[in-house]
Structure formats: structure tokens, C-alpha cells
Design a protein around this nucleic acid. Structure first.
Lengths: 142, 142
DNA sequence: TTATATTAATTGACGTATCAATTATTGAGC
DNA sequence: GCTCAATAATTGATACGTCAATTAATATAA
């Protein structure tokens, strides 16, 4: 087993470890989980959208989407309604309050991200993004 | 909001996304989860170790360590015993079968990792590892 | 038009991480 | 020696992801 393989192992492990350690800090800094903010962010970009379409965009399981939206609805962050023309579809939109609060969340998120990438030059960020994208593509193929 | 911030956001999201998509594939390719293999790997490196020490090395919650080890014990992969000198400590070691099977797992893992990093030159791997380590350090400080 | 297939959403079962509380054992100070 | 603090392990509650099964509505084909 070569040294470079050990380094490769470490890369994989660090990817995993970074996620695990980031998630709780992200939430305590911003006040919301990464997935949920992603959902709100997608809603922020549109007037109204079906759960199905939203699910495709955030790319997590249907079941998780349903549960998040139900909770966001309870918190009065989003509004859901059935499409009258096709009752299978449920349409979702941000409530006025949701639209206000997401702005706050995004500010906190921005601070958080700049902490995470502290010390990274612009050029390095570009490189990193490129490498992560390549990894994502590789994983896709497996 | 500048373009570079959007790129930074994407980096964070991709780190999260890579983990989420890697985990199930890792498990289906290797036959074991990343965390559990990490536990076994640590055990592979030593004769015997306390759960406390093992927990420090893998750096996940005590509760998770306990639960994993209980399941690995049921599967006859590890052996646990109380330290007679200090009954608070539980010592863990690989069983003979565990020691055999981890070799298999590691081969599968090696294949998996080379798929994930397919197309990465040695120099890029070094760069990536360096950047991930810096991110880890940044997260630590938050 | 009536049976069948498809689609969106939901629910259930499960795995695994976290934090907090509890239990059991040992150590320290009086 | 006895009480109180510290430590390791465990258990309970909760969160959130997966896949599989189910429900409800619509489209399609005989």
C-alpha cells in the first residue's frame, strides 16, 4: 500500500468529517439547517413551485421534502395548496414572514461561509470548486 | 452579492452533497459504512484499546461508538471486556474473523476511492488534501 | 367506459448522528 | 472510612436521511 493511497483515504475521510462537523455548527450559527435553508432558498427564487419540482432541485428524497415542508408550514414559513387542475400536485410558496426571515438566514450563512473559507485566495476557491465538481461527477458514475 | 460569494456557497453545498451521495455508495460498494470501517481500522492498528480512546480517535459521539460496537460484537467482529483493574473501562479488540474481514473491506474501499478520485493527478490530490485540512481547521475554530 | 398504468405525495420502518440524563465505578479530600 | 467529584459507558429523546409501501388523482388503452 503506497503513501499516496493513504493520502487518498484521508481525502475521503476528510470530506466525510467536514460534513459531520459543519452541519451542527452551520445550524447553530445560522439558526437553520443546511437542507432547510436550501429549500427556502429555492422557494425564494420563484413565485410558486410544485413539491415535485422542488424535490428535483434540492435532490433529496421525496419523503424528506414532505416532512420539511410540513414543519416549515407549521412555523408559518411556507404556504401549501393543491393545484386545482391536477390535485396530485401540491404547490408551495414562501409566506411573507418566510420571505423576510430568509434574508436574515442568508446573512448568517454568508458569515459562516467566509469563516469556513477563511484564508483561501480567490484562485484557490476556483480550484477547489472545480475539484469538488469533478468528484461529484465521479461519484455520480459509481 | 458578488459572484464569488455564490461560488463559495456552492463549495459549501457541494461538500455537503458529496457526503450525502457518497455514504450510500460507499456502503453498497464496500459492504460496510464509512464510520464502522474507520472503527475497525483503528482496532486493526492496535492489540486492544478502550472505548474511550477509540472514541477519541474516530471523533464521533460516545453514544454512537457504544452502539456500533454492540452491533459489531453481535456480528462477532469484535470482542469486548471490562478492564479488571478499572471496571469503568471497556476494552475492545478485533476477533479473528474481524481481522480477516477487514482486509476484504479495505480492498473494496481502495477501489472505491480510486473511482472517487479518478482523473486526479498526484499534484492535485496533494492540493486537495491541503485545502480540506485548512477547511477542517477553520471549522474547528468556529 | 372501465380496467390498468403512472405520477405526486404521504407514511412507515430503519439507520445513525447529536445532546442530555443516568448508571456504575473509581479517586480525592476531609 | 465516608462523602462528593470525576470519568466511562449506556440509554433516551430527537433530527434527518434512505428505501419501500400506500394513497389519491389522473392518463391511457381496450
Amino acid at each position: 500500500m503506497s503513501n499516496s493511497f493513504i493520502a487518498d483515504e484521508t481525502i475521503l475521510y476528510q470530506l466525510y468529517d467536514i460534513y459531520r462537523r459543519t452541519a451542527p455548527k452551520f445550524e447553530s450559527c445560522t439558526g437553520i439547517s443546511q437542507t432547510r435553508l436550501k429549500l427556502l432558498h429555492e422557494l425564494y427564487e420563484v413565485e410558486e413551485i410544485s413539491q415535485r419540482e422542488l424535490q428535483k432541485r434540492v435532490n433529496i428524497d421525496h419523503a424528506a421534502v414532505t416532512r420539511h415542508l410540513k414543519q416549515l408550514e407549521e412555523k408559518r414559513m411556507v404556504i401549501r395548496r393543491k393545484n386545482p387542475e391536477d390535485q396530485r400536485f401540491t404547490y408551495v410558496q414562501l409566506s411573507d414572514e418566510g420571505r423576510l426571515r430568509i434574508i436574515q438566514y442568508r446573512e448568517e450563512k454568508q458569515k459562516f461561509i467566509s469563516d469556513v473559507l477563511n484564508g483561501f485566495k480567490e484562485e484557490e476557491r476556483v480550484q477547489l470548486l472545480d475539484m469538488l465538481t469533478r468528484i461529484q461527477n465521479n461519484i455520480e458514475k459509481i
